[in-house]
Each structure stands twice: as C-alpha cells, then as structure tokens.
Computed example of a mutant assay.
Amino acid sequence: MSFKTILTVMGASQSDRDLRTATEMCSEVGAHLSIFIVAMAPTPTGRYETLAPAWLEHRDRCIEDLATLVAQVATQLASTGLSFDVESIFSELAGVAYDIGERALYADLVLIGPATYEDDDLKRQIVLGGLFQSRRPLLLCAPGRAATLKPKTVLLAWDSRPQAAAAVRDALEIMKGASAVHVTMIDPVSTPRASGEEPGADVAVYLARHGIEVTLDVLPSTGRPVAAVLQKHALEIGADLIVMGAYGHSRLREFVFGGATRTMLDETKVPVLMAH
C-alpha cells in the first residue's frame, strides 16, 4: 500500500513532538497530512445536578482552547508546503474510539507519535478506533527513536495468521524499498494447516513475486514472551521497523489485546507497523 493520506491523532497538550514527527514522515513520502486533535472529557463524579454547570463550563473552555490550537497548528503547517487539514473534537471517553475510527476511514495510515505513545488512555482509543474499528494500518512511534516509512532494515513478524498477512499487504511498498527484510518466526510449527512443511517458505515466495528478497529467521522463545524475543532480535539486526499483525477480541464490555500486541503497544523501543 502507498500512503497518500496519513492521519495523526494527538492530544491537546501533545502537539509539538507529534506534529514534527508527522510532518517529517509526510514530507518523506509526499503524503497529505490529516491532523485530528482530541480532548477527552473528564468523567463526572458526584451528583449530576451539582456538577452539570461546572462540567459545561469546562467543556466550553476546552472547545475554545481547541479552536485556538487548531488555528496555531494550521499556521505551523502552512509554512511546510505540505497538503494538510486540521480538525478537533471534544469527546467523552466512551465515544473517542468511534470518533477516531470514523476519521480513520479516509486515511491510508494512522500515526501515533512519540508524545501520544506515552498517553495510555488516548493511545488505547486510537488503537481501538483506527486499527480495530476501521482496519487501518497503525504506525507506533516510540519515544527516542526516529520513525521512517523508508526503512533500510525491516523485521516482519510472521505466524501464518490472517492478521500477519494483512500486515504484509499493508507494508509491501515499504518492504520493496528496504535493503533487508527479515521474516522472523518464533517457535513455528511445521504442519500443513499452519506454517507448511518449511515454515516461512510460503510468505518468502509471495514476497519474492513482489521483488522482495528476504532472510528467514527462525528463533526459539526459550520460555520468553514473543514480544521480548522480537524486540531483542530487532535490536540485534538493526531493524528500523517491525511489521506485525495485531490481535485482540471483545470480552463483554472490555476489549482485550493479545499478549504480544499489548507488550508492543506499551514497551516497544523500535517503531512498529501493525495491521488487523
């Protein structure tokens, strides 16, 4: 997939670092930058009759502040020469993921910048809305590590599941431009219904048809979490990007992420492109 529209979701107090990351990435690939600034309403505590006036006053101030911030961001972006748009929303926590998901329908990639990465509440809402609701690829930019859509070395986490295949499709153009692509498997099982007789061979052939040469890395977990093994290997091979499928499911009213997905969301040191 080529990325022509990149959606960056950020909080009202997180614009500088994330805006810089987003503008650099869009400049790199010539993409339109879509900024969505989110202010999440605090959850009222106490009697509604007592708190309603104060809550409404707070909401009005937030909306005014958001309008000012939108104008400031637009002024900053006007000097970059990029194609862009800036929107904002004041939303209750329960509706944030839906709002982000609706916005993500019109983007090729959803970006979580380094400042938003450190905001667990907003990050979770972006993942739920952009990745799981709208099924858009999501790029996590961890603090302290420059992210790029033109990496030299890519680690592809492969487990022969549809989510991993979705990540492969979304990252094809990225991997075509890379110097090295490591198809990395942790404890693969050699069965016809899973990885085939030779784990990794099928995806290697698929990628070869797209002009992508790969190195197959089969690693034992030795009792360690899959995410920890992937992170360590990424650092060892000097990967600029990890590409992986994202796993999660709804349990009653709570959405539960898979173990490797959750760890990458919380602890990654290398930029991660996820797809579902």
Rank of each mutant, 00 (worst) to 15 (best):
Y106T: 11
A22S: 07
D16W: 04
L252Q: 14
S88W: 07
P192E: 03
A142T: 15
T21V: 10
L66K: 00
T45S: 14
A178W: 11
V38G: 04
R161H: 06
A166D: 11
P42D: 02
R135P: 06
A260R: 05
E87D: 13
V189G: 00
S83C: 10
S83N: 12
L19A: 08
S88Y: 12
K150A: 12
A52N: 08
V218P: 00
S134W: 00
P162R: 15
R262M: 07
S83W: 13
A41V: 00
T80G: 08
G130I: 09
R47C: 11
Q231Y: 04
E64L: 03
L128A: 03
H233W: 03
D60A: 12
V243C: 04
G248F: 14
K152N: 10
K150L: 12
S79F: 09
T80D: 06
T215F: 10
M185S: 03
F255L: 08
L69A: 02
I6N: 03
G223K: 15
R20S: 15
D240P: 02
I174M: 11
L207F: 14
L230W: 02
D159Y: 00
G101M: 02
K150H: 11
T261S: 10
V181I: 10
P114R: 01
Y98T: 13
L138R: 11
L207R: 13
I237N: 05
V96E: 02
E49D: 13
E28R: 01
V154Y: 05
D202F: 13
V205A: 13
V256G: 06
A234L: 04
G30T: 04
D85W: 11
A165C: 01
V181G: 01
K123M: 02
F84E: 09
Q133L: 15
G258H: 01
V181N: 06
D85M: 03
L93V: 12
A167Y: 05
T23C: 06
F90W: 15
D266I: 00
L109H: 07
Q231A: 15
A246L: 01
L230P: 07
R193D: 12
V226G: 07
I6K: 03
A234G: 14
D108I: 02
F90D: 00
Q231P: 08
A54R: 14
V270P: 09
G11W: 06
A12L: 12
V73I: 15
T148R: 02
A74T: 13
E198P: 01
A147H: 02
Q76T: 13
K150F: 07
A22F: 04
E28V: 01
S2D: 12
E92W: 08
A260P: 09
E198W: 06
L155W: 09
A142W: 02
V243T: 03
L140C: 04
M185C: 01
V38W: 00
I212H: 12
V9E: 08
D99L: 15
M264V: 04
A74Q: 09
A234S: 15
G258T: 10
G30K: 03
T222D: 15
H32L: 09
G81N: 14
A107K: 08
R253N: 15
V183A: 01
A115N: 08
A208I: 11
A234F: 04
G95M: 12
G177I: 09
Q163G: 03
A208C: 10
D121I: 07
L66F: 05
D99Y: 12
Y247N: 10
K232Y: 09
T23M: 09
P162Y: 02
M185A: 00
A166L: 13
